[in-house]
Amino acid sequence: MTESKVINLNIDEFKKEVLESKLPVLVDFWAPWCMPCQMMAPILDSLSIAMAGKIKVAKVDIENPSNEVLAVVYQIQSIPNMKLFKDGKVIGEFIGLRELEVIKDEIEQLIK
């Protein structure tokens, strides 16, 4: 199996990897205490492979205290919360567990 291309981000890398990214970026705000987040992880791994070259897939662990400010800025009130960034702006949001094909289709519509 091809290796996952998901990148784990912290606040210091967020600007460069997400806001200044040339490719759209799907950012999963998650935490280890949440089972749906854990179930989403392998789906995001597959998504990162299936959509390589079209989007980047990144994860931000909001349990990490230094990332808390990102949860506040992006008003995360429920996890898993996945936001699709393009040119530094949020162009789509997915709350809760999603099937691979479902989220892939939705993203493809948004980045068309």
């Binding site: 935490a31 205490w33 949440c34 089972m35 749906p36 987040c37 909001i62 349990e63 949860a71 995360i76 009130q77 429920s78 996890i79």
Partner: peptide, 9 residues
């Protein structure tokens, strides 16, 4: 789900 989202409050 309080366990999932509680920490965000």
């Amino acid at each position: 789900c309080a366990t999932c989202d509680g920490m965000l409050f």
